[in-house]
Computed example of a mutant assay.
Amino acid sequence: MKKVYVIRHCEAEGQPPVSPLTNRGLKQAIELAAFFENSKVERIISSPYKRAIQTIQPLAKQVNVEIEVNRQLKERVLSTNYLSDWPEKLRNTFEDFELKFDGGESSQEAAKRITEVVEDVFKGAFENTIIVSHGNLISLLLNSYNKDFGFNDWSNLSNPDVYLLKSENKKVTFERVWR
């Protein structure tokens, strides 16, 4: 049985790709490494965003696994325009997966990106892989395996958060494993 741990990054200073973790986020990254202390980790794939890479660096060092950066794991862009009502707009994209705002990606497009990465991992040689990404993108991934996972579940994600995806007999199930 293949396992993929999907991790939402630790607390960050902001949303831009270059935003680092806060001091609290750096401590959370160390706690995350401790969380995986007794787990076998063979592969680590991360979003190129600084906060994602910083989240997984302590664990990568601990297990001596190189971090693979994958652009398909970058956060979903809702719009390139400022949206004062972005939470409502985001909620709408969970109800209409083809809805798209100026310069942004639809939920369908974003979900396809991260699902491709996960499906490739399940087809690969490694039994235990970690993927580090962002809340909206992870929510869309989880929704692709269970349509009940929606906007309210996204809003209840923590920084960090960890979900374990398992693939058995071509069926993917998941559970939240972060404390």
Rank of each mutant, 00 (worst) to 15 (best):
residue 154 W to L: 15
residue 157 L to Q: 15
residue 136 N to D: 10
residue 119 E to A: 08
residue 129 T to L: 05
residue 132 V to W: 08
residue 169 N to L: 11
residue 119 E to H: 05
residue 120 D to S: 13
residue 167 S to E: 15
residue 169 N to P: 06
residue 135 G to N: 01
residue 146 N to A: 12
residue 138 I to Q: 02
residue 125 A to M: 01
residue 119 E to T: 11
residue 171 K to G: 05
residue 163 Y to D: 08
residue 177 V to F: 06
residue 164 L to S: 07
residue 164 L to R: 15
residue 151 F to S: 10
residue 168 E to N: 13
residue 121 V to C: 12
residue 152 N to V: 02
residue 151 F to T: 14
residue 124 G to H: 00
residue 129 T to M: 06
residue 129 T to A: 09
residue 150 G to Q: 14
residue 156 N to H: 14
residue 130 I to K: 09
residue 168 E to S: 07
residue 139 S to W: 09
residue 150 G to V: 12
residue 178 W to Y: 11
residue 163 Y to S: 08
residue 123 K to A: 15
residue 175 E to S: 12
residue 129 T to V: 12
residue 140 L to E: 03
residue 122 F to W: 07
residue 149 F to G: 00
residue 176 R to V: 02
residue 170 K to W: 10
residue 178 W to Q: 04
residue 138 I to R: 04
residue 133 S to C: 01
residue 168 E to G: 01
residue 132 V to F: 06
residue 155 S to Y: 09
residue 159 N to H: 14
residue 137 L to Y: 06
residue 127 E to Q: 13
residue 144 S to H: 04
residue 176 R to L: 02
residue 151 F to E: 06
residue 176 R to G: 10
residue 165 L to T: 00
residue 168 E to P: 03
residue 159 N to P: 03
residue 122 F to I: 10
residue 135 G to C: 01
residue 156 N to S: 15
residue 164 L to P: 05
residue 168 E to Y: 12
residue 124 G to Y: 00
residue 132 V to G: 01
residue 164 L to D: 03
residue 171 K to Q: 15
residue 137 L to A: 04
residue 148 D to K: 15
residue 158 S to T: 15
residue 152 N to E: 12
residue 149 F to A: 01
residue 172 V to E: 11
residue 169 N to I: 00
residue 163 Y to G: 06
residue 126 F to H: 12
residue 164 L to N: 08
residue 129 T to D: 06
residue 161 D to E: 09
residue 164 L to I: 10
residue 136 N to E: 04
residue 174 F to G: 03
residue 131 I to M: 02
residue 177 V to Y: 08
residue 154 W to E: 06
residue 147 K to C: 03
residue 121 V to P: 05
residue 164 L to Q: 13
residue 139 S to N: 06
residue 147 K to P: 07
residue 125 A to Q: 11
residue 155 S to Q: 15
residue 153 D to S: 14
residue 140 L to K: 01
residue 130 I to F: 07
residue 175 E to F: 05
residue 162 V to F: 06
residue 125 A to T: 13
residue 159 N to V: 14
residue 157 L to H: 13
residue 155 S to I: 14
residue 153 D to L: 06
residue 133 S to H: 05
residue 121 V to E: 13
residue 148 D to A: 15
residue 155 S to L: 15
residue 142 L to P: 01
residue 162 V to Y: 08
residue 123 K to W: 04
residue 163 Y to R: 03
residue 178 W to N: 02
residue 159 N to K: 13
residue 160 P to L: 11
residue 131 I to P: 00
residue 163 Y to K: 08
residue 169 N to F: 10
residue 171 K to L: 14
residue 173 T to N: 08
residue 172 V to L: 09
residue 155 S to N: 14
residue 173 T to V: 11
residue 134 H to M: 04
residue 126 F to D: 13
